[in-house]
Design a binder for these strands. Sequence first.
DNA 1: GCAATATACTAGGACATCCAAGGGTTTGGA
DNA 2: TCCAAACCCTTGGATGTCCTAGTATATTGC
Lengths: 168, 168
Amino acid sequence: MAAPLPRDPIADAQRNWEQHGWADVAAPMAAITAIMRTQQILLARIEGALKPFGLTFARYELLALLSFARSGALPMNKASALLQVHPTSVTNAVDRLEGSGLVARSPHPTDGRTTLIELTAEGRIVAKRATAVLNAEVFGQSGFAPADVDQLIRILGAFRRNAGDFTD
Amino acid sequence: MAAPLPRDPIADAQRNWEQHGWADVAAPMAAITAIMRTQQILLARIEGALKPFGLTFARYELLALLSFARSGALPMNKASALLQVHPTSVTNAVDRLEGSGLVARSPHPTDGRTTLIELTAEGRIVAKRATAVLNAEVFGQSGFAPADVDQLIRILGAFRRNAGDFTD
DNA sequence: GCAATATACTAGGACATCCAAGGGTTTGGA
DNA sequence: TCCAAACCCTTGGATGTCCTAGTATATTGC
């Protein structure tokens, strides 16, 4: 781990923005930059927790999504939509998960264009174990105060809705 | 742009967590997942705004950092520390920015191991213009309420300090 | 003073993301 | 009915991030 900096680099950036005549957008700039950095920290923790399973976050998300599907299977385009990533990213994740024997591709019964992805027995087990580890090591020790978690869910939920993620 | 989903997929995930006996970590899971998704949305906006300049966010951050340095130059390791990214990422960004003529490498006057990166005249101009566009198109239209911006800065600032980013 | 350790940068590899383009399958309007 | 438009998935390319390893230069300690 890199040594801590003596000062918050984002707070410094915010001050720089204010001193260069961009005070009106200095705060949003700082908030957005902080989101970028926080994502980086969280992603590193998540990947670290998943490493023993040979999983990355992208692959884990797909496994978790499938494990919650009633039938344990989903069309690729559906997975792409729900995970909100590009179809090619799903193709990539499925290729690797299939190589590890955690999911399997199967043709859609009625639509020849569609491919279904399905959890294998081993995939279901790995998904469960990986979730347990993530819950214990990452989500359970996020470092966010409960009240702040609620704030984040509210603020980011509104942002995502506003960005067109969902209409709910 | 993908069509909006009828329901918030993260709220769904949170419900799934609660129904599977992980209610104690369902909220932090949702908050963290929301941060990941929000980062993705913001990054896409930023990259879109920077595209006309032939810049990516990683390269822009380096340009902006240099533009605020007193001398307009910084050692690579210093840039790596301040941007909080791996040294190889800085090498990558500098390679490309150097190729575009926006920065230049020069040897450190006293330490033979160190390489200084310096803004070129054109680099300084591009940094200024790109910042103006980012301020206008992204930071100035974040969609976050002012009070929420303050909340984000506070919550994520505490998180980053707690994660060891800085000691300030 | 010199060897051992530490630091700085870069090369190569693994992954993830997106975009653009291509080939196969369905759907829908003329 | 039939062909064009729409849709689905995959391939190939560009970028970014990190890790590991290797080379070169500094610093430290005996």
